[in-house]
């Protein structure tokens, strides 16, 4: 016996992955608009959001015209909890998403004296991106990531800063920061269409006038 229906759906982990990216892109645009309204430089709130890219920071290597931080959302792993799941239909998943933030820095002349070191600027840019990402994803507006009824809980599990896998002595300075974001939700699997074996109906009537007070139907299925 094979599965009767075409599996034509997104799993919840995919929906949540896309939702995290959409929230970040939407809120970055909103923050830039708010900054403009507040007569601040909107580029200080600019992030470029990607999903499931292996080396998005490659953009920094050959084109330095836009040095705004890059954010990449990708699925890392899922763990399923059998204690609060069923073997048939619903499995509770705790999925970890990595939200990697890459900051680019370029050494530059300081007209007031000295210079601005590119390695420090890259770290500061990565930290700025991390700050925006954490505040957006942990904002009260996104307690359930806009998917109430699907997402039970979202949580910043850890933050680590790292150097991307590149030669240490290359001309560009890039620093990465990873926000490990854990989201809990249910995953569902295809089911056998149920067939009714027996229908049990119950009516409750008032004796004096025969008025129907309550009625209930119970389907007994396989």
């Amino acid at each position: 016996m094979t599965i009767a229906a075409l599996i034509d759906k997104q799993d919840t982990f995919e929906i949540v992955r896309d939702q995290i990216g959409a929230i970040l892109a939407l809120e970055v645009a909103s923050q830039m608009a708010l900054a403009t309204a507040a007569v601040r430089d909107p580029d200080d709130w600019k992030l470029r959001v990607f999903s499931e890219r292996s080396n998005p920071w490659e953009q920094f290597l050959n084109d330095q015209s836009d040095g705004s931080p890059i954010v990449n959302v990708w699925v890392d792993n899922s763990n399923f909890d059998p204690k609060v799941s069923t073997v048939v239909e619903r499995q509770k998943s705790e999925t970890v998403y990595n939200v990697d933030c890459y900051g680019y820095g370029q050494s530059a002349d300081n007209p007031a004296g000295g210079h601005t070191p590119g390695d420090r600027e890259a770290a500061f840019e990565a930290h700025r991106a991390l700050r925006l990402v954490r505040n957006i994803l942990m904002a009260a507006e996104y307690t359930y990531l806009g998917l109430r009824g699907v997402v039970f809980r979202r949580w910043t599990q850890a933050i680590t800063v790292f150097q991307p896998q590149q030669d240490a002595s290359q001309v560009q300075q890039i620093v990465g920061a990873r926000l490990v974001f854990r989201v809990e939700f249910n995953e569902f699997s295809p089911q056998i269409p149920l067939e009714t074996l027996e229908l049990l109906s119950a009516d409750v009537n008032r004796t004096e006038d025969g008025q129907l007070i309550a009625e209930a139907d119970y389907d007994y299925t396989i």
Binding site: L61, N62, Q166, D167, S169, Q170, V171, Q172
Partner: peptide, 9 residues
Amino acid sequence: GQIVSGRLA
């Protein structure tokens, strides 16, 4: 012999 990405000058 390691893979290197980036620009070296």
